[in-house]
Design a protein around this nucleic acid. Structure first.
Lengths: 190, 190
DNA sequence: GAGCAATGATACATAAATGTCTCATACGAT
DNA sequence: ATCGTATGAGACATTTATGTATCATTGCTC
């Protein structure tokens, strides 16, 4: 659980809490603050010392998720590649994060700053869709909002299907790209 | 709010409650039982008389949704038509129900009987996917589970996009079918 | 070893939603 | 007019999560 967010050499209590919360809430999004403390091997009082309220913790997790997603996508994407190639790489980068952050999909984040960052992520996807249209990979008559929604949902679906074991993690990104660009019909792939 | 579920000629308190709950929970899924009572123009005690617990009410709404969906789909589908035609009709039938039942998507239904019925609906979609593959509309190498998940998500996405006004209700079903079978790429439609 | 910071345990104080119960009343059917 | 049912209002009891405050203990630093 070491990351750029924790420059310290040893795992701190904070990290233990974050890890426990992610694991726990992934299985049970309604898990209580006390349960998080117990799973983190930490007193509930200490938990409150690190994250004053439940929402605080949730917000921090969302921030970490956004952070990590941005990093993963930035590392995976080659700006000079074609837009459809970038799309594929984006799926490849993001889908592996699902087993840790998919619970955030249904979580209700109140914090404005965080939701604004999320919206900005979607905006960037919108830009990518624009490029997809420009290079002819996506038809111009399809509303951009619809395409963005599809990409978002494809990520979520991939997370789900991989988590439930119905689809192999290795196949998910390819399936997602294929679904979006060519559909699941049987015409030959380019 | 008159339906096969309420043979009585006049709207009953029960109907008022169901209608209010749907409207209210569509806007705010966390709305309290008291709020539902207030919006239904009914005392909280009376609400409890009609639906003992909050979960009871939620379950009844889910049952109604399943019922109505089944009816709508059955009425729309022509069993002798092609599978892809049936898919399109299914989208057309189901998407208009979104403004009333989309909140159920995120609701947690505990009732076993109801979740079993929902699963059976998904199974029927699985059967349809089988036919789509048989008639060559869907590639055989795509996991059926993935296709079913996509269909489910397409319905949900369509609900969202229509609700937010980003996509016209009239276009949604076509977009959904097109997305699934041909993708959003720009090759000409058959 | 003294001192300091973090921790665990525990008690306390709310706060909010839920479900139950009672009672007076209004309404409808007969 | 009367009886019976459904209702609204309100009081209660319970449950559950949450956030705060206290205090003794542990562990680490200097």
């Amino acid at each position: 659980m070491r990351s750029a967010l924790n420059p310290s050499p040893r795992p701190t209590a904070r990290d233990a809490i974050i890890g426990a919360a992610i694991r726990l809430w992934s299985r049970n999004p309604g898990a209580t603050f006390s349960e998080v403390a117990r799973h983190a091997g930490v007193g509930r009082a200490s938990l409150h010392r690190h994250f004053r309220t439940r929402d605080d913790l949730l917000t921090v997790l969302a921030e970490i998720c956004i952070e990590e997603t941005n990093e993963a996508v930035a590392a995976a994407i080659d700006q000079s590649a074609s837009a459809s190639r970038q799309l594929q790489r984006m799926f490849e980068a993001v889908i592996p994060l699902g087993d840790r952050y998919s619970f955030l999909y249904r979580a209700e984040i109140g914090d404005e700053h965080t939701t604004a960052r999320y919206r900005r992520q979607l905006d960037r996807v919108g830009t990518l869709v624009g490029e997809l249209k420009a290079e002819g990979a996506v038809a111009a008559d399809v509303p951009t909002a619809w395409v963005v929604a599809q990409i978002d949902q494809l990520i979520w679906t991939a997370w789900n299907e991989v988590a439930s074991g119905r689809v192999a993690a290795a196949d998910a990104a390819n399936l997602a790209t294929r679904t979006l660009l060519h559909g699941l019909g049987k015409e030959e792939q380019p």
